Simulated scan of single mutants.
Amino acid sequence: MSKPLILVTNDDGITAPGLRSLVSFMKDLGDVFVVAPDSPQSGMGHAITLDSTLYSKRIKIGSEASDTKEYSCSGTPADCVKLALRELLPRRPDICISGINHGSNSSINVIYSGTMSAAIEAGIEGVPAIGFSLCDYNWDADFSHTEDFIKKIVNEALAHKIPKDVVLNVNIPNLKKEELKGIKICRQAKANWKEKFDKRTNPMGKDYYWLTGEFELLDKGEDTDEWALSNGYISIVPTQFDLTAHHAIQDINNWSLNE
């Protein structure tokens, strides 16, 4: 039987150490095909390119060049997946793996994440997908200890199939391998960012702003991704892209909207 075709993408850019590690890990599981941004696209969410052209080119990086097809793309993470599925891939992939992100995409961060938006774009197209993130923002982060866990999760997803219309959001705490306690299936913690803007003035007298803020956890549950990460576990949150608040439909139906 042919090996599974694995589409690999990310939001930190095609040269990011996290993606290079992921490409190396996935080569042991199947045929790897990479389509990733040509520059960092963190925090882009599910943005897509509508008012300008997209460019893509075949590239070769490191030791993977001989047996891995890789393309850089001028667009967003979601653009990368769209272009891969419509133009670049030789056939439909068996799974899409996004990451490994440099930094957490747990709780509310999933909304802003380009890593997860790439995975979600694949999910929308009916392709099983997983986003991986390591809770270490350092560009030179060590990803080697994540290999066994990532391979196990991907192998299980290939064997058992991810439920329809669900994408897995996997976050790995910044701990040594021997300190990791295992894997927990979780819900997304309720959290927010207490944001403010650092206002400054440039030499020309024009005001500019830097967005800053502090992460605020509003959830004390022990079944959340934040609890798992704080207690030494890898978190997996099954994430859906149907944003309907089903529990609110009946309440709003009681409004006098058609009177």
Rank of each mutant, 00 (worst) to 15 (best):
N258F: 12
Y208G: 06
G103F: 08
A84V: 04
E125F: 04
S256I: 04
V127Y: 04
A65Y: 09
V81Y: 10
T239A: 03
A36D: 13
R86K: 13
M44V: 06
E147M: 07
I95H: 13
G182E: 09
T76R: 09
K190Y: 02
Q41F: 08
L50S: 03
I130V: 15
G213D: 04
H247L: 06
T115H: 02
K164T: 12
N155W: 00
P17K: 09
I97C: 15
N231P: 07
V170R: 10
V154S: 12
D79H: 00
N10Q: 03
L211P: 01
Y112T: 01
G75Y: 14
L88Y: 02
Y112L: 09
K206C: 03
N169P: 06
N169K: 09
S106G: 06
S98W: 08
W139I: 11
A228Q: 06
I97F: 05
A47W: 07
L243P: 06
E226I: 09
N174W: 01
V32L: 14
G43P: 08
K151M: 12
Y137R: 13
I61H: 13
S104D: 02
K196R: 00
Y209H: 02
K184H: 05
K60L: 10
A157F: 06
G103K: 06
V110T: 11
L217S: 04
L50I: 04
V8R: 05
K161L: 11
S39I: 08
H246W: 03
P128T: 08
S52G: 07
V110M: 10
S106K: 08
N171Q: 05
G13C: 02
V8I: 15
I252Y: 15
S104M: 08
S42D: 15
V34F: 03
D225G: 09
F143A: 13
K220C: 03
